[in-house]
Amino acid sequence: MGATGSGKTTFINLLSGSNLEVGSGLQSCTSTVEVASPFQLDGRWISLIDTPGFDDTTRSDTQILTQIASFLATAYESGKKLAGVIYMHRISDVRMGGISTRNFKMFRQLCGDSTLKNVVIVTTMWGEVSREIGEAREKELANDSKFFKPVLDKGAHMLRHNNVVTSAQAILFHLIGNHPRALTIQQELVDQKKDISETAAGEELNRELVTQINRHKQEVMMLQEEMKEAIRAKDEETKKELDFETSKLQAEIARIQEECRRLASEYAEQKEALEQRVAEVMAAARKDAEIVEENHRRQLQELEDRLHQTAMTSSSEKEEIQRKLSELQRRFEEMRSQLKPRRGRGVFGKIGRTLDSGLHL
């Protein structure tokens, strides 16, 4: 997780060999939750999940929250938890402005304090600043209570990523041995059956939206005062400009109000789509398993018939049939295990890949 352009997708591609699209300009490329190809590290299967930031250029914060929340809730319902969460921040940023602060606030509400021991804050873009400047900013971020100090005090860690495989792997080594934990958003939506607007992240988003609405209303009031003055001065050109600006602000207020109302319904739509895709892939997996088992039974019966028919023949032929029976059973067990959704295949086995593709509906 992290702001747009903080290096999330590049980090994932570097480690996994995936080809997730990376943004090169101001436009965000990660507009939905994406699951990278699984890879092995230190004998473990690793799957990394890419999420859009809450400053996405193509989707609203409401859409981002519903996408992330529905993915996490569906995964949790399938019995899957995260071993770690990585939050990325550009050390090249001169200051931690409003956008970065909003992203980090939403991140904290999604994770909750109980999972902070499984959180690593990763600073990126070290090649864009001098070592002295980077270290000074890193110290400020770690020690200022307005930035990362509160989460570091509660068990999170802060590491650097130098855009090379070794530093990326070092970050994962810090997480892969963790006991997987449910995030707060998962517990709220699944265990506590809360409406998304009642979750900590939903309430934070609503507070942010209400703040935006109030700010725009203040701006409208100021424009209305200027309008009165323009009318008194019979300044038609200024009046037209103020009319235009007022209409823009009122339209923005209406959009934000609609965004508040849409939070619950958008989550329900996303969740339903994901659940349908999971049901489909599980049905397909069961069908595949039935076909495999039927073929196995048929081949097994054929070999047993041959063994019975060769009761009076040479021991060497019997040994060959027994060998084939053993080989058939071994292959059957391998195929059956491959059809099972297994931890470490995809993000969450077949379910993980389905959750990924489901978010692209």
Rank of each mutant, 00 (worst) to 15 (best):
D288S: 10
A284M: 01
I253E: 03
E269N: 06
D243Y: 02
A289G: 09
K248N: 03
A273H: 12
A285V: 01
S265E: 01
A268E: 02
Q276M: 07
M282E: 05
K248H: 13
I256Y: 07
R277I: 14
C260H: 13
L274G: 09
I256Q: 00
E290I: 13
Y267H: 03
K248A: 13
Y267G: 04
D243N: 09
A284E: 14
S247L: 04
T246G: 06
Q270T: 11
L263H: 11
A285D: 05
A285M: 07
R262L: 13
V281S: 05
E245S: 06
F244Y: 14
L274H: 13
R286M: 04
F244S: 07
V278A: 13
E290W: 12
R262A: 14
R261M: 09
I256A: 02
R286K: 04
A279S: 13
A279F: 05
S265D: 15
A254Q: 05
L249M: 03
R261T: 14
Y267C: 07
K239T: 11
E259Q: 00
F244D: 13
E245K: 10
R277A: 15
A279D: 13
E280D: 11
V278K: 15
R255L: 07
Q270M: 08
T238I: 07
F244R: 11
A273M: 06
S247I: 06
E280Y: 01
E272P: 00
E241R: 09
A289S: 09
L263T: 08
L263C: 01
V281K: 08
Q250E: 01
K287S: 04
T238W: 09
E252L: 02
Q270K: 12
R255N: 11
A268M: 03
A289Y: 08
R255W: 10
I256K: 09
A284V: 03
R261F: 05
A254N: 04
K240S: 09
L263E: 00
A268S: 15
E280M: 06
R277H: 06
A254R: 04
L274D: 07
L263N: 05
E259Y: 10
L242C: 07
V281M: 00
E258H: 08
K287V: 04
E259A: 01
A284G: 03
V281H: 03
A254F: 10
E258I: 02
S265P: 12
K271N: 07
Y267T: 06
L274A: 06
E266F: 10
F244K: 15
E290G: 09
R262T: 00
L274S: 09
T246F: 01
E241W: 15
A279H: 07
R262V: 09
L242H: 12
L263V: 06
M282T: 08
A251T: 13
K248P: 06
A279K: 02
E272H: 04
L274P: 14
A289D: 11
E241V: 11
R262Q: 14
K239F: 03
E290V: 15
E241P: 10
R262G: 12
Y267L: 02
L242A: 14
E241F: 11
E245M: 05
E272T: 00
R277S: 09
Y267K: 05
A251S: 05
E252K: 00
A254K: 15
T238Q: 15
S265W: 02
R277V: 14
Q257N: 01
